[in-house]
Design a protein around this nucleic acid. Structure first.
Lengths: 221, 221
DNA sequence: CGCCGCCTCCCCCGCCCGGCGGAGGCGGTT
DNA sequence: AACCGCCTCCGCCGGGCGGGGGAGGCGGCG
């Protein structure tokens, strides 16, 4: 395959543990398509080194002194003209930082227990395209989301069409009169529907009903 | 690098368009490490073929007649003893199916406009590890989530400590009197705080304030 | 046909809520 | 010292809201 199309992939390693950096360097340099251009032991250092060396890829640890990997990622992507692809390295799959890293604009993820081959593949892929590499972690996060969205609370099915409409409008902050004019019925009718909604949701006022609607995912956050 | 450690990677292609299958086959077979073991034009066919051939990787289109790619993925993972890694192929980045595919247990994603090299890399990586390959799509999805959770709406910082307490309690469905006894102050005091919250959130009643709190991620859904 | 659920609308009552103005104490900034 | 923001409370008022009851029309189901 066409691994080396000329220049090597220039990598910067950012990790506060020297041993980790050494290990990563050893793995990458065993392939001649990589060149470890520099190292950094803190987030601030990482930003400086990247600004200086303009590498293709940065392997960024999340937990680092002074400035953590997430904020370093943000700063790099915000301030460097042609920013590198950044691969965030985490220890635990279910690390809450995964979200943060995504937001910050990371191009990939890697677990510290990944083997050498995975590391090589990841760096190579990230260098060539914008793809995101994900550990299994994301699967559970996505499942969580999906679960929250899908959990069908008992009362949802029992709402009549009109009641559902009214609840949705309640959840936008409208008063009964506003809902009435919106759906073209009298205010008294809306009151009736609201009363039904309160009964079926087991709530005592519109505020609680709206809360229930949100908690049930009945309205999208 | 150690690309071929003996047997080739056996791949099954599932796509209702013959041309797509042909193109994928051409790309994969240009590398001798892959072997396209079979093809399928529908979801049901895909399940049958996989059960028959037990490949290492399946490239699965989302939109297919009869049974879509998502449900085919579910069925394969649920019914095949040693299921293959499944890479879901989508046309659009912001495809809602991405979530579904994750839930179904897909090991990767690929955009149809991905180039040959990306495809090869993706299949190879997925075959060897459980990593998920993500197109940029996921970034926006995750950003959306994160944004909802994190987007610091201007008014949040402007709430005083007491006001924040009161808003949180409002968002649990308590009345002013209940909030008062909960935080050990007079009802009139709570009314004042509520009024401040309404003013700062730019809402007119407690229901709208609670909605704003949810939308802002001020309270966890 | 009778029963039931849904949608529509009406009445009255009472409370809680939101809007208004006023007040005092406390701590930090200028 | 003057000022401002926050927290604490008080009163009054009007209105939206929730509870209770009643009523009629419509459609489906046994």
């Amino acid at each position: 395959m066409k691994t080396s199309d000329g220049a090597p992939i220039r990598v910067v390693l950012a990790d506060d543990e020297r041993m980790v950096r050494t290990a990563l360097r050893a793995i990458l340099e065993s392939e001649n398509e990589f060149e470890v251009a520099g190292e950094a032991a803190t987030g601030a250092e990482a930003v400086a080194v990247v600004r200086e060396l303009l590498p293709d890829v940065v392997l960024m640890d999340v937990r680092m002194p002074e400035v953590d990997g997430i904020r370093a990622t943000e700063q790099i992507l915000r301030t460097v003209a042609e920013p590198p692809r950044i691969v965030v390295v985490t220890t635990f799959e279910n690390d809450a930082y995964v979200y943060e890293a995504l937001r910050a604009g990371a191009s990939g993820f890697l677990l510290k227990r990944a083997d050498a081959d995975e590391l090589v593949q990841a760096v190579r892929l990230v260098a060539r395209s914008d793809s995101l590499l994900f550990p299994a972690a994301v699967r559970s996060l996505a499942a969580e989301h999906a679960a929250a969205r899908r959990a069908a609370p008992p009362w949802v099915a029992r709402l009549s069409g009109r009641e559902a409409d009214v609840l949705r409008l309640m959840a936008t902050g409208l008063t009964n009169a506003e809902i009435a004019s919106r759906i073209g019925v009298g205010p008294a009718t809306v009151k009736t529907h609201v009363a039904s909604v309160l009964a079926k949701t087991g709530t005592r006022d519109r505020t609680q009903a709206v809360i229930a609607a949100y908690e049930a995912g009945f309205v999208g956050t």
